[in-house]
Amino acid sequence: MNIPARPIVVFDIDGTLTDTVVLHQRAFEAALRTFNFPRLRTAWGNYRHHSDSAIFREAWDEAGFEGEPPLHMLEERYRSEFDVLCDATPCDEIAGASQLLADVEQAGWIAAFATGSLRHGAHRKMALLSHPFDHDLLATASEHETREEIVQAAIDKARAKHGVPSGGRVVSIGDGVWDLLTARALELEFVGVGDEARARQLREIDASVAVHGDLVDVGRLLGCVASVP
């Protein structure tokens, strides 16, 4: 008897599992400004790739600085800024995030995580959840620059660790435009989460995209389609 391959769900973190978008952006901008860019664009969505390392590289190139952008220095400065802000600013998971992860695992799905954030921030954000996560299945901007590379790395990690062949079902869950664009580029199923304003934003790109107002609805959806006993 052929046992169906376990499906994989790839979660974005900021704005999807944790309420940390503003906190992250403040820490990231503060870290960038320590490099004294002559003109730093802070409309992050206008950069070619929406990840910390890719934005850093593009800003570095625009400034005309020589050599490779020192990512290790950015990481050190971001770590310092993020820790100070995180310790001083109350923040929490998105309502239902921990329960969703528990439900996903109970349904037989493999949960992987892909974020445009640097790794230190991702770990601190995920620590806000009461449900544990597999650190081995986290891909971040510390290792890859483009969102496509990050998401694909998370999928590859999940497949390798759990012996899942390529070609199985993969669902991407996120709240942002870049999450949707990345899912479409990688030909993944996509489920959006967010309020009506965010839903309109996502549907301007793809009118057919499913956007749910909270993570409880997402959990119901994944529970209904789970096929692994």
Rank of each mutant, 00 (worst) to 15 (best):
F113H: 13
F113M: 12
A114N: 06
T115M: 02
T115D: 04
T115G: 05
S117L: 07
S117Y: 06
S117W: 06
S117T: 15
L118M: 13
H120P: 04
H120K: 08
H123I: 12
K125R: 15
A127V: 10
A127Q: 14
A127G: 12
L128C: 10
L129D: 04
L129S: 02
L129N: 00
S130I: 08
P132D: 11
F133K: 02
D134G: 02
D134E: 01
H135T: 15
D136Q: 12
L138A: 05
L138N: 08
L138K: 06
A139H: 02
T140D: 06
A141D: 04
A141L: 05
H144R: 14
H144V: 07
H144I: 03
E145H: 14
R147H: 09
R147W: 10
E148S: 15
E148R: 15
I150C: 03
V151H: 01
V151I: 10
Q152S: 14
Q152G: 05
Q152V: 06
A153K: 07
A153P: 07
A154V: 02
A154R: 03
A154L: 01
D156T: 12
A158I: 01
A158D: 04
R159I: 07
A160Y: 09
A160L: 13
K161N: 03
K161C: 09
H162A: 11
G163T: 03
G163L: 03
G163K: 05
V164C: 07
S166Y: 12
S166N: 13
G168F: 00
G168M: 02
G168R: 05
G168V: 07
R169S: 10
V170H: 02
V170F: 00
V170C: 00
S172D: 11
S172I: 12
I173L: 15
G174L: 02
G174F: 09
G174A: 09
G174E: 06
G174N: 03
D175T: 00
G176E: 11
V177A: 11
V177G: 08
V177P: 01
W178H: 14
W178T: 15
L180E: 05
L180N: 08
L181F: 00
T182G: 10
A183G: 15
R184K: 15
R184H: 14
R184Q: 15
A185K: 15
L186Y: 00
L186T: 00
L186P: 00
E187R: 14
E187K: 14
E189F: 03
E189N: 10
E189M: 08
E189W: 02
F190E: 04
F190M: 08
F190A: 03
V191G: 01
V191F: 11
G192W: 04
V193E: 02
V193W: 04
V193P: 01
V193H: 02
G194W: 08
G194A: 06
D195Y: 08
D195K: 07
E196F: 11
A197E: 15
A197I: 12
A197W: 13
A199D: 11
A199V: 07
R200S: 15
Q201M: 14
Q201Y: 09
L202C: 10
L202K: 10
L202D: 09
L202I: 02
R203K: 14
R203M: 13
E204Y: 08
E204Q: 15
I205G: 03
D206F: 04
D206Y: 01
D206G: 00
D206A: 11
D206I: 01
A207T: 13
A207V: 12
S208V: 06
V209G: 11
A210D: 14
A210G: 05
A210T: 10
V211Q: 03
V211W: 00
V211C: 00
V211M: 00
